[in-house]
């Protein structure tokens, strides 16, 4: 059983690979039904964010255990330009490009935990988790 899966994101095929790996790992961890789709969709959004803003980066999907709770952890990191105003970037419907502005805030809605760390000029790291219920 794969414990961790790392996917390089440098083109749109990488987004597909990341969400497929996420679904596979989530299934192995015991997630089922709509949770699998929800996790894959959230991964798709953060992976696209990497491609759109930093051109390339990495998505790391792993098993997560904490205080008797089990779940899946997704880390999306890049060394791109970073986000100057995180609050604005996390506003539903706000987009710097010609998008819907749903990507990051949408991923947050789909997962149980969502943390974003970004430094201008250094890059962005998003950590999100979904617990098994």
């Amino acid at each position: 059983m794969a414990i961790e899966s790392r996917v390089r994101i440098s083109d749109t095929a990488g987004i597909v690979t990341a969400r497929q790996q996420g679904r596979t790992l989530a299934l192995e961890l015991g997630f089922e039904g709509s949770d699998l789709t929800v996790i894959a969709t959230a991964i798709s959004e953060v992976a696209r964010n990497i491609l759109d803003h930093a051109k390339s980066g990495e998505v790391i999907i792993s098993r997560y255990q904490h205080g008797g709770k089990r779940g899946i952890c997704v880390i999306a990191c890049d060394t791109g330009p970073g986000i100057a105003d995180i609050e604005q970037a996390m506003q539903y419907g706000y987009s710097t490009r010609n998008g819907l502005g749903i990507g990051l805030p949408g991923a947050k809605l789909l997962m149980d935990e969502f943390h974003i760390k970004s430094t201008v000029g250094l890059g962005t790291t998003i950590t999100m988790r979904k617990w098994m219920h």
């Binding site: 699998l36 789709t37 809605l109």
Partner: peptide, 14 residues
């Protein structure tokens, strides 16, 4: 559109 996909879309507000 599959039921799980529809569910995720609604959660995303799409």
């Amino acid at each position: 559109i599959q039921p799980d996909v529809a569910f995720a879309m609604v959660q995303l507000g799409l």
